[in-house]
Simulated scan of single mutants.
Amino acid sequence: MNDFPTARLAVIGLGMATKPHLEALEQLRGRVEVSGGMNRTRAKADAVAAAHGWRVFDDIEQIAGDPGTDGVILATPPDQRLEIVETLARAGKHILLEKPIERTLAAAERIVAICERHGVTLGVVFQQRMRPAGQRLRALLNEGRLGTLALVRVDVPWWRDQSYYDQPGRGSYARDGGGVLISQAIHTLDLMGSMTPPVRAVQAMTATTRLHRMEAEDFATAGLTFTGGAVGAITATTANFPGGQESITVAGTLGTAHLRGGELTVNWQDGRSESLGQAGGTGGGADPMAFPCDWHRDIIADFADAIHNGTLPAISGREALRVHRLIDAITRSAAEGRRIEMPEGD
């Protein structure tokens, strides 16, 4: 971390998704300070504030007008984002968003445009980018060590029981924007997109299995064509009891790399093999928060540095649009029963 003044961040939205944020912020005390918290349910805000020694903000306008707040960690459900972002960005507050940016591609693009128009830093929490094994795989691909890319496979075999979807709005288009794609698989799809050439075409299907009562999909599969000629396949579900670890397999002309959870295994065509990291928990089972806070800590620390450096964060809002475009293409392909061509220059 660079030697800069302490970043002062407010936390908006104190539900389940903020558990690793709260742990990470405790570890970052001195480098990042919390100016206060806010939640739609005041009792929740009071409880969290009392536990961590925070101030409680009454409303968004109070945060926007607070000179002691440099930026915010925004972890509300996606359907609550647009107005909040507009108010904060207009006030010059930098924003670190929990994924997804918003429910639809159009709304996500609007949020990115708002922040760019007001000149504030917008970061998105895709914490899987911070896993050392994933960073090692990205380096192997960037350096061309696996040879010419031929095949990419993504598997997200997760599990959520019905009680998860019984919570109001879960798995709905109105609140979440969809099901397994935008709420769970988005992390692994973002990680894939950060290390592969752009996807050029998608052919997909989605479904809701008999294991869940929910509006949106709990299963999705898609075939992909990448720029440069490689092909790929995606399978994502929350109906795979008891839940397994997500994986990305990348095959090139010189070797094949398999990233499963936090463990990377590389098998070279010449007979060598190597491994890095360990599987670890990533929230694929019944407990969605069964993973360490280390990756969130690194995301928040990087965001604080970006604010003070005037540089882009590790995952900027504009960069995060890439995975939103992919999910939009998968969803449209499944709904329309046809191949979807991705926009040039994505």
Rank of each mutant, 00 (worst) to 15 (best):
T225S: 14
D70Y: 03
T148Y: 08
F241W: 11
G244R: 10
D305T: 13
A216G: 01
A17G: 13
R81G: 02
R297W: 04
A220G: 13
I300R: 09
G228P: 02
E246V: 05
N267C: 11
D166Q: 14
L321R: 09
T208P: 03
I101H: 06
R8T: 11
T225Y: 00
N267T: 14
V48P: 01
W159S: 07
H118E: 15
G15Q: 08
E215V: 01
Q62M: 11
W159M: 06
T196L: 14
D298F: 07
E217P: 02
F57P: 02
R103H: 08
A10P: 00
G37I: 12
R339G: 00
G134A: 15
E274R: 08
E336S: 05
L211K: 13
I186C: 01
A279N: 05
D218W: 09
L146F: 09
E217M: 09
T237M: 07
R81P: 03
G285S: 13
V124R: 04
E86W: 06
R117H: 14
A47C: 01
F4C: 06
D305C: 10
A24V: 09
E217V: 04
R110W: 05
L224R: 03
Q128R: 15
D66P: 00
Q245L: 12
A107D: 12
G15H: 10
A301C: 05
L74K: 10
T221N: 06
M342V: 05
R81F: 00
D59R: 11
G252Y: 03
